[in-house]
Amino acid sequence: MNWAAIRVIYVTEMARFFRTIAQSFISPVISTSLYFVVFGAAIGSRINEVEGVSYGAFIVPGLIMLSVMTQAITNASFGIYFPKFIGTIYELLSAPVNFLEIVLGFVGAAATKALFIGLVILGTAALFVDVQILHPVAMISFLVLTCLSFSLFGFIIGIWAQSFEQLQLIPLLVVTPLVFLGGSFYSISMLPPIWQSITLFNPVVYLISGFRWSFFGVADVPIALSLLAIAGFTALCLAAVWWIFRTGWRIRG
């Protein structure tokens, strides 16, 4: 293993993040506070409780997931797209590094940033509502796995993208709707039966449900299914990344 290479990629990527640390910190704090003002105050006054949990607390896991997923994808896709765009990718291609080392560096950094933001949101939420965490180990595991798998997914998007528009296309057109419709702000059981069935095709449902279970012990789908979903998604992304580096798809002519 070329550990030095992993270290410099990781450190360089994190440095970009720290250069804008204030911004990285403040924007999730503000947006989380806004969610609580809007959802907590406006909607929360109508919906008191969902499955025995106060509405304000109920939306916390979904809120964290929403940010973590979009942040992971944005950071990782930009992280690898940027060297392609400015041409510095030549250095990665001509260095004695393998795909695993490149991925560990870039995806590791993107996942770290996403995790940081997830924790900032959790902290901010705790200022507004009483957040209890029934299964802390499961909570952290879900959070970390989500950061990792969505960073991997973002990495793939960054390799695939050939323009800035394409870079933003998938997060905007696919991920954000899936997350919003994935039960971030409501329980699946609140939907009409037909929508409940349709919703089950949305993979994000399983992640949010599992994550919420680790907070409150209530879930839309069995927890085993949630674990399977996140493990499967991670495996799928890993396989795709492995294939990309083996064939040099879109990076090595």
């Binding site: 030095a4 041409g87 510095t88 030549y90 004695p96």
Partner: peptide, 26 residues
């Protein structure tokens, strides 16, 4: 390798980008 095009990250410092290359080569 010194490529034909000037492919450099515009905002990194000279000594950082040179140290980066060294690390990349293990």
């Amino acid at each position: 390798l010194v490529p034909q095009e000037i492919n450099l990250e515009p905002f990194s410092k000279v000594k950082d980008t040179v140290a980066f290359s060294r690390g990349l080569f293990g």
